[in-house]
Amino acid sequence: MERVQFKTSINAGVKKVYDTMLGQDTFKQWTAAFNPTSDFEGSWKKGSKIAFTGISKTGKREGMLGVIEENIPEQFVSIKYSGLIDGDREITEGPDVADWAGSHENYTFEENNGLTELTVDIDINDEMREYFKSTYPKALALLKNLCEA
Results as ranks from 00 to 15, higher is better:
Q5S: 14
Q5C: 15
Q5P: 12
I10D: 03
A12P: 04
V17W: 08
Y18E: 11
M21N: 04
L22P: 03
G23H: 00
Q24C: 14
D25T: 00
D25N: 03
F34A: 10
N35R: 11
S38T: 14
D39F: 05
F40C: 12
E41V: 01
E41R: 00
G42L: 08
K45Y: 07
K46G: 06
K49A: 12
I50C: 03
A51L: 15
F52C: 00
T53C: 02
T53L: 02
I55E: 04
T58P: 01
R61L: 08
R61P: 08
E62N: 07
M64H: 01
E70L: 08
P73S: 07
E74I: 01
F76Q: 09
F76K: 02
V77M: 00
S78R: 07
L84W: 06
I85N: 04
I85P: 08
G87W: 06
I91M: 02
E93T: 11
E93A: 03
G94W: 10
W100Q: 12
A101L: 10
A101W: 00
G102K: 00
G102Y: 02
S103F: 04
N106M: 13
Y107K: 10
Y107F: 15
T108S: 09
F109K: 03
E110N: 02
N112E: 08
G114A: 05
V120R: 01
I122H: 01
I124S: 04
N125L: 10
E127S: 06
M128T: 11
Y131N: 05
F132R: 03
Y136C: 12
A139I: 07
L140P: 00
L142F: 14
L143V: 04
N145L: 04
E148Q: 08
A149E: 06
A149L: 08
